[in-house]
C-alpha cells in the first residue's frame, strides 16, 4: 500500500437515522485502499461503537481518521456529558444508557470493551460536563516497509 489518507466526519447527537454511517464510510475507504479485511473489520467495529456512543450521549461530535502505511488512527471528540469513571465504563455490562436506547439495540455495556478488544491502543480523555475524546490505533501488521514502499 502506498497511499495515506485522512479526513473527518461530523456527528449529530441523537441523529439515529445517520448513526453508524461515518463508520460505514470509513470502512469503505479502508476497503478501497486495499487494507486487509481483518484490519478493516476491527477498525470499523471500533469506530462504529465509538460513533454510537457519541450519537447516544453527546450533543455533537467529530470523527477524524488518519490512515498511513503503518496504522489506522481514529479520534472521536464529542461535546457530551463526559465519563465520570472510565474504569467502570470499561467494564462489560456496565451502562448508563436509558431504556429507549436499549430498545434500539444499544447500551448493553459492551461498547467500550468492544473498542478495546478490537484495537492495539486506546486512550480516553474525558471531562465531566464538557466531553470525551477517544482515540484508537490499529497497526497494519504484516505490511513490511518494502511492500508499503
Amino acid at each position: 500500500m502506498t497511499k495515506s489518507s485522512d479526513g473527518v466526519f461530523f456527528l449529530t447527537g441523537k441523529d439515529f437515522t445517520n448513526a453508524g454511517s461515518a463508520s460505514s464510510n470509513l470502512k469503505g475507504i479502508l476497503d478501497d485502499m486495499g487494507i486487509p479485511a481483518d484490519i478493516v473489520r476491527r477498525a470499523a467495529i471500533a469506530a462504529f461503537e465509538a460513533e454510537m456512543n457519541a450519537i447516544i450521549y453527546a450533543v455533537a461530535g467529530m470523527m477524524r481518521y488518519s490512515i498511513t502505511p503503518e496504522a489506522v488512527t481514529v479520534t472521536l471528540q464529542d461535546m457530551g456529558p463526559g465519563i465520570p469513571d472510565i474504569d467502570l465504563a470499561m467494564k462489560e455490562g456496565y451502562s448508563t444508557a436509558p431504556d429507549y436506547i436499549r430498545e434500539m439495540g444499544f447500551g448493553s455495556g459492551m461498547g467500550l470493551p468492544n473498542i478495546k478488544k478490537n484495537t492495539d491502543k486506546l486512550t480516553i480523555n474525558s471531562v465531566v460536563g464538557e466531553g470525551t475524546t477517544l482515540e484508537f490505533v490499529i497497526y497494519l501488521q504484516g505490511l513490511s516497509p518494502e511492500t508499503s514502499g
Binding site: 455490562g93 451502562s95 431504556d99 436499549r102 448493553s108 455495556g109
Partner: peptide, 11 residues
C-alpha cells in the same frame, strides 16, 4: 416460558 437473553439489566 423460559426466557433466553444476553440482556443483564436489572429490569
Amino acid at each position: 416460558y423460559v426466557w433466553v437473553t444476553f440482556q443483564s439489566h436489572l429490569n
